[in-house]
């Protein structure tokens, strides 16, 4: 019940401060551009593979836009409250930390869902003139959603560590990029190490989703990353009890 109260206030704050509009508009513009150029390319050069190849390429590109934009969505969640001091009001209200964390997380996830839902326009438009396989498109969206949620949890945690929103956004982007590229340079590590790095990699776990496959392994990866960051946020908020500051 109180999670819902917090989430509603956060959503209002997103849409009154223009952050949500800016992030959503940027996401739609850039992923729309990717979709259009990919479509043109596939129609002109490899027309036979539009059914699958177009979506693979488009989700591949949208994933990048998502990772770069999520830190901007999450940077204010705790940093702003710490700067304004309003976090003290929440901490002295009859709320539990978990209400605050999940309420804020939920609000950002809803913005993410809205962003993704708006891009469903692309397959719908294409379906008017060309047949679209729903399966791989749906798994692609599931992948984007799971990955975006993990990004949000990461951003939420880093936002709880600082009262500076820019610092929160940069740090989040840093962590996400590291997780993304962690297994790219295979030359530096042995085969055993690279297997472990693959397991940790943000980008590696996304591949099955855009191939139209839902692997339990990949779902567990994103969900556990999300849970891990949410727990870190809880610890970070808990630290006021011995540090004496919000």
């Amino acid at each position: 019940m109180l999670i819902h109260t917090i989430a509603r206030r956060e959503l209002k704050a997103y849409f009154t401060s223009l952050i949500a509009y800016t992030v959503i508009a940027t996401f739609l513009a850039v992923s729309g551009y990717f979709f259009y150029t990919n479509m043109v390319m596939f129609v002109m050069f490899v027309g036979s593979d539009v059914r699958l190849g177009l979506w693979q390429q488009t989700f591949y590109d949208m994933r990048f836009v998502l990772v770069s934009l999520m830190p901007l969505l999450t940077m204010r969640l705790f940093a702003e409250e710490k700067k304004l001091g309003t976090i003290e009001l929440l901490f002295t209200s009859p709320l539990q930390d978990v209400d605050i964390i999940l309420g804020k997380y939920l609000a950002s996830v809803l913005v993410l869902v809205l962003m993704l839902v708006l891009t469903v326009l692309y397959p719908i438009l294409l379906a008017i003139v060309f047949s679209v396989d729903i399966g791989p498109v749906a798994t692609g969206y599931l992948g984007l959603f799971l990955m975006g949620s993990a990004c949000i949890a990461c951003g939420l945690f880093l936002s709880s560590l600082t009262e500076n929103q820019i610092v929160a956004a940069m740090a989040t982007l840093g962590v996400l990029l590291l997780l993304w590229f962690i297994d790219w340079n295979e030359g530096i590590a042995g085969a055993a190490t690279i297997r472990v790095l693959h397991q940790l990699s943000f980008s590696e776990h996304f591949l099955n989703f855009i191939r139209g496959v839902i692997e339990l392994d990949d779902v567990v990866y994103y969900v556990s990353l999300t849970v891990l960051f949410l727990c870190c946020t809880a610890w970070s908020l808990e630290s006021r009890k011995w540090r004496g500051r919000a």
Partner: peptide, 8 residues
């Protein structure tokens, strides 16, 4: 510090 959500 009388913290308030200034945008509400």
């Amino acid at each position: 510090s009388v913290p308030l959500y200034l945008d509400m």
